[in-house]
């Protein structure tokens, strides 16, 4: 079972929900939490676990070999991303623009642009009892999150069996990194807050999930603040409202210190139980 925790708007509580849900579920079963918000990974600030493994992650980029190059300019012509330029007697490669499509390399008549690895980030694998935690972190200056998200998903697939429940803390928004983080999930939890910004960005996230033909539900964070437009929207659109995390300054303070909430705030635990109940329903429906 793969569950992605996503949201249109940033800062609505994706990481709070992911980490608390993972730690709580891990009290009873094996759980894997994966932080796919590779631009700003934060789950690790809330999970205390032992580092098992660390891997550098690479993307493939072309490297010019001047000795064999005949300066035909084919590479520049085939690159749709302007990542390869012929300047006078030189071929220049701009790695940050390269999408690793291999066209320039494989279509070069003299094999003068072999693909070589370039570091784009780091993956860390942590463990604490029944909880495994995987985090990937994009190097500053690398602009594309998608290749690192893709490789992280692959790592998780190879490391853990299908039976283990997996939670994916996704990046915010509705563009390519979110699609990459959610497209393989069985269920998506959209976290929002009951404010005009929260509602607006939720509607974008809902459109995205419908486009991807995904099964999803909504969790309202900071419930009690703002207005009830999000609740009205969900009921009008027939979207299941899975849980409501209360608006509480104490919660904000615990979060600010990097602490988990459910052990200290009974109201949060109750809401997690509601959410888990829903997830278990999905699992047994899936087995039938």
């Amino acid at each position: 079972m793969k569950i992605a925790i996503a949201s249109g708007k940033g800062g609505t509580g994706k990481t709070t929900l992911s980490t608390n849900l993972a730690a709580y579920l891990a009290e009873k079963q094996e759980v894997v939490l994966v932080d796919l918000d590779v631009e700003e990974p934060n789950s690790g600030l809330f999970i205390k676990a032992e580092l098992l493994r660390e891997e550098e992650k690479y993307k493939m980029i072309p490297q010019w070999n001047p000795d064999t190059c005949i300066l035909c300019g084919n590479c520049q012509e085939v690159c749709n991303f302007h990542a390869v330029l012929k300047l006078g007697e030189q071929i220049m490669v701009f790695p940050e623009l390269c999408h690793s499509c291999y066209a320039c390399s494989e279509l070069c008549p003299t094999n003068s642009l072999p693909m070589v690895p370039q570091k784009m980030g780091e993956l860390k694998h942590f463990n604490s009892g029944t909880l495994s935690f995987i985090e990937s972190r994009l190097e500053i200056g690398q602009e594309q999150a998608v290749p690192l998200i893709r490789q992280t998903n692959k790592y998780v697939e190879e490391c853990f069996s299908e039976q283990v429940i997996k939670l994916f803390d996704s990046p915010p928004g509705t563009s390519c990194p979110v699609i990459e983080a959610t497209k393989d999930a069985d269920f998506i939890i959209l976290v929002t807050e009951p404010t005009p910004f929260g509602l607006h960005d939720l509607t974008l996230a809902v459109e995205t999930m419908r486009e991807l033909k995904k099964n999803f539900g909504v969790v309202i964070n900071r419930h009690g603040i703002g207005n009830d437009e999000v609740e009205k929207y969900c009921s009008a659109e027939n979207i299941p409202l899975l849980a409501r995390i209360p608006n509480d300054r104490q919660i904000a303070e615990l979060y600010s210190r990097g602490e988990l909430l459910y052990k200290k705030i009974p109201g949060v635990k109750e809401q997690l139980d509601l959410l888990i109940h829903h997830i278990e329903g999905l699992e047994s429906a899936g087995e039938r």
Binding site: T15, E39, E40, E143, P177, S256, R257
Partner: peptide, 25 residues
């Protein structure tokens, strides 16, 4: 974030205002 949209937002800027909050994240 720190990816391509932010890089585009920053290019050519004269001054950056960073908004943050006192949480570990």
């Amino acid at each position: 974030g720190v990816g391509c949209p932010v890089v585009s937002s920053l290019s050519g800027a004269k001054f950056v205002v960073l908004v943050t909050e006192p949480t570990v994240s």
